[in-house]
Design a protein around this nucleic acid. Sequence first.
DNA 1: TTGGTATTGAAAATCATTCTCAATCTCAGG
DNA 2: CCTGAGATTGAGAATGATTTTCAATACCAA
Lengths: 175, 175
Amino acid sequence: MSKTIPPFSHLLPRQNESEIIKFDERNQTDDFKKIIRAMGLKITEQRMLILRCLHDAEVQSGERHVTAQELFEKVAAVDSSVGFATVYRFLRNLAEKKFVTEVRMGGQSSRYELTTQHHHDHLTCTSCGKICEFENPKIEKLQSQVADHFGFILTSHILELYGLCPSCQAKPPVK
Amino acid sequence: MSKTIPPFSHLLPRQNESEIIKFDERNQTDDFKKIIRAMGLKITEQRMLILRCLHDAEVQSGERHVTAQELFEKVAAVDSSVGFATVYRFLRNLAEKKFVTEVRMGGQSSRYELTTQHHHDHLTCTSCGKICEFENPKIEKLQSQVADHFGFILTSHILELYGLCPSCQAKPPVK
DNA sequence: TTGGTATTGAAAATCATTCTCAATCTCAGG
DNA sequence: CCTGAGATTGAGAATGATTTTCAATACCAA
């Protein structure tokens, strides 16, 4: 049995340790309901299904970032009567309430990921695609100083570093 | 006489000093032509006009980041027969060849700026789309430290800060 | 000057996302 | 367990930015 992480548990009211560790279908369902209530919304089949698909995509399929379309397809595969507007709408709700994080890259469509406990940035190898996550409070602090300087209230940021990882430095450049 | 910066000069083949400093209408036209040729494209009235408007927006009006629509309007004000498709197309060409840099933010439309010699990052207002540029050596230094820590050779990075600008803080939330 | 190609403008097409609205569902209060 | 006010839904239309299509036109090397 691999340890299963309860969905969004870090965003919900504190539970005792054993509840956090012992995670099963019933708890998952309960967590999903708590999330929906925490947003001040009504619990519906559609919203439960969307949450489940979002959670499964990450935990089971390991798909870090899903687009609204992709999520819609996963949902539709289970219940084809769910409309895409419902997925878009609910995803927006989740993003507003910070249960998911919206990542927009270039002209591409938005991608959504479950909000993680710890903020982190990425260091990506341009040759092999390896990604290291890191967190640097000093950089964060300097960022808010910059925002302050312009009179902005900082709400979020994107920091992506690109470079050559150790093993790729050894290899000849690809292509 | 304020010192006028020749457009894109840093991206064009090296010139001698006096040519760089003495910038006038004729040289501007020549520079624009060189840029278009450097992209392997034919010189047309439309492209010349688009370049002029892009340059003027920055140098005269101080509008450093224009959307394709805004640029189209400026162009159309001079020659209303130019189609927006031409502006979009050429802007894409310029971006591909790095003569302009495309900045995308949230759901807003792309903004374009002349590519500058000096690296800088952006602070964008999530409400009105206003962009402030900044450069922060301390952040840059910390970034290389992070890369070092993972054994990476840092080649580039993206840092985009998002927040609410002073005037949008005053206004009630949009809609 | 001229012809082969690149470019253009206008309109239609795309693409992601949001809105509209009548039908349906949820759930607090009875 | 009912009920009804109000939230939610699905379908499709609407939106907004950008891209594509295509016939007419412009560019420029020869």
